[in-house]
Design a protein around this nucleic acid. Structure first.
Lengths: 170, 170
DNA sequence: AAATCGGATGTTATATTATAACTCCCGTTA
DNA sequence: TAACGGGAGTTATAATATAACATCCGATTT
């Protein structure tokens, strides 16, 4: 019982998941949402979103700038920050406040406010809807009489993939 | 039945609470903890802590620097950042990640990780232990197999005191 | 076609936040 | 006294972010 050679896709390089799928879903959703909302996912914004989605790691603005320059030779800090502002407004990326960095949002259409689990080892950021946490949080905020505009819930530590690999302390 | 003049303290300026009590408790706790832990709450560190405790607002590092200079003419950015690093390490202040700012911690002795409710109107920061939220969060993180090092839970909005005052949008 | 308008981008400059690296001082200890 | 270690002084610079104004370009109106 051999695996059929002709249909098996090449495995993703160093990771266990099909990252192309992550990217195409995210970009596809973004394109769709922007059409629906009547806003422009311009070439620059599209490129920045793609650069962010090259990995699940949080990326710095100036790192994005360096990576954008080969594609947009006129790119300056304002170029990046404007694109980031747009992508955040549209809920297509998260700003990771505790890192001054940015990461793609997997649930752009749905609720945007999630737990972010930030791994110090691999630097990847995992989003979790964490409905029970959010529910308890809503209750707490109601009790406090606090009118919420936005939430940043950022947990730093070691992700499950890295826990296995790293037994030295961080 | 007149109030006894000789014992009534002057009311705190624009606020409903006895802020001197906040300050003296915080400073007292800090002094005590530093002795217990065998670390030095040096004059500079003490002054920075006092400056932070002048209000419940989140304060910027360079704003603290400006306010420290009259007391420590040699103060430079490093002076402030070293003091802030120390105070954070000792759990005496919070760094508000989403503002790049700092605020006193009211529960220095106890658990340090709390909800921070950050009012956009008055800029004050309220800490809340929010045990139910924290419990749900612990469960969520256990389920995710994530080893926690630190948490930042920051909610932006309008606090209950300001909701009454401000009906224009923010 | 010309005028105009708004959104996006180009461009220059600068503000804000934070750290590196090296020195000095001072009190403790070997 | 010498060595050490923590705290602070000092200089320089890195990293992050925004302001302000000019230009371009496509859509709409005149």
């Amino acid at each position: 019982m051999n695996t059929p050679i002709e249909t098996s896709p090449p495995p993703p390089p160093r990771s266990e998941h099909d990252h192309q799928k992550c990217v195409s879903e995210a970009i596809g959703t973004a394109e769709h949402l922007c059409v629906v909302r009547g806003v422009q996912l311009t070439p620059i914004r599209h490129q920045v979103l793609e650069l962010i989605w090259e990995s699940h790691k949080a990326v710095k603005a100036y790192e994005l700038l360096d990576r954008l320059k080969p594609l947009q030779s006129a790119a300056k800090p304002a170029t990046i920050y404007r694109a980031l502002d747009f992508l955040i407004e549209q809920g297509l990326i998260h700003r990771v406040e505790s890192l001054n960095a940015f990461v793609g949002c997997s649930s752009s259409g749905h609720q945007h406010e999630q737990l972010l689990l930030i791994c110090k080892h691999c630097n990847e950021v995992e989003e979790r809807p964490a409905t029970e946490v959010m529910q308890a949080l809503s209750q707490e905020l109601d009790q406090a009489g606090f009118i919420v505009h936005s939430k940043a819930i950022e947990i730093h530590g070691i992700c499950i993939k890295c826990v296995a690999l790293c037994n030295e302390q961080d």
